[in-house]
């Protein structure tokens, strides 16, 4: 199954940079060497095996934008699964940016009315009062979108915010995300785990997590009870990507992790061909080896699950 992802926004807003961070595992420090993208750079990224993300990184210089909106209009805007529109938070031409944005919304409405729309207010590392700035931008952008449903994120390539935004975006493209979540919850219960998280293998974006049950169950499967850090998913993605990068500098391939810390144990290991799983356990009586064994035994089930739902 193929999903077309349009990556649009003014030149220099950071589209190619985020693509190279998420999909090519390049460090943020190297993005300053990227040249402006000429026309459209298309990439096929295999994501979760059968799901193929067809990324259209659309160079943002005016001449290209004008052509996307006129002669190339139907090619660009048809069959779009998701459009990600990137705004540089410090843009000095916000008026023009918004005008192009509105035109792109028109194009989508005409050719792919069902497409999901995500707006990234990018380079947030450059501003001081992040919360306030984002709130204001969010309000403006929602107003500009004139009733079209959009989701706004503040992002930066220098912290975990980029992983949060992209995880949410790809989550909408995975047809069986809810089913995966349900099975992860069952698996977490079987392991006496506080939480289980499933990552895509190359990007380390979060695909699904076990639920927090709303019942006042007495089982240890209650993340609410532990009040874990709300930014943990995206920060885990970022930390592991950074460590994978450190390993690659030594030409070592990252394989798995077992962390026995004072308050919890975490095991990160391959789940299926295309995913990694992380099991977090707070109960000190659960042995790490048991967690590994459980992951091993869950593998077949998850391979099946993934196969089933993706062909549909």
């Amino acid at each position: 199954m193929k999903k077309k992802v349009l990556l649009m926004g003014a030149s220099g807003s950071g589209k190619t940079s985020m693509r190279s961070l998420i999909f090519s595992n390049n460090p943020a420090s190297l993005t300053s060497r990227l040249g402006a993208t000429i026309d459209v750079e298309q990439n096929h990224v295999r994501f979760l095996g059968d799901l193929i993300l067809n990324l259209w990184d659309c160079g943002g210089q005016d001449a290209f934008m004008d052509s996307y909106l006129t002669t190339q209009r139907s090619t660009i805007f048809q069959h779009v699964g998701v459009m990600i529109y990137v705004f540089d938070v410090e843009s000095r031409e916000m008026g023009k940016d918004l005008e192009y944005y509105r035109d792109c919304l028109e194009g989508l409405k005409q050719h792919s009315p069902e497409a999901g729309i995500f707006l990234l207010v990018h380079k947030m590392d450059l501003v001081k009062l992040r919360g306030d700035v984002l709130e204001k931008k969010k309000k403006d952008l929602e107003e500009e979108s004139k009733g079209v449903g959009v989701v706004v994120f503040g992002t930066s390539i220098y912290d975990e915010s980029l992983y949060r935004a992209w995880s949410s975006i790809v989550h909408t493209l995975i047809p069986n995300a809810a089913v995966l979540s349900k099975h992860l919850t069952t698996f977490a219960e079987a392991c006496s785990a506080t939480e289980v998280i499933l990552f895509e293998r190359t990007t380390f974006l979060v695909i699904a997590t076990s639920h927090v049950p709303n019942t006042n169950s007495t089982s240890s499967l209650d993340t609410d009870e532990h009040q874990l850090d709300p930014t943990r998913y995206e920060r885990t993605s970022e930390l592991i990507k950074a460590f994978k990068h450190s390993c690659s500098r030594l030409r070592e391939e990252f394989h798995s992790l077992e962390m026995e810390l004072h308050e919890f144990t975490a095991v990160l290991d391959e789940m299926t061909k295309n995913t990694y799983v992380m099991v977090v356990v707070h109960d000190p009586t659960i042995e790490t080896a048991a967690i590994k064994m459980n992951i091993h035994m869950a593998r077949r089930k998850f391979e099946e699950l993934q196969g089933d739902s993706l062909v549909s």
Partner: peptide, 14 residues
């Protein structure tokens, strides 16, 4: 460095 950062992410705050 990763391990030190991980500690605070999944540490029980309750």
């Amino acid at each position: 460095q990763m391990l030190n950062s991980f500690g605070s992410l999944y540490r029980s705050k309750s």
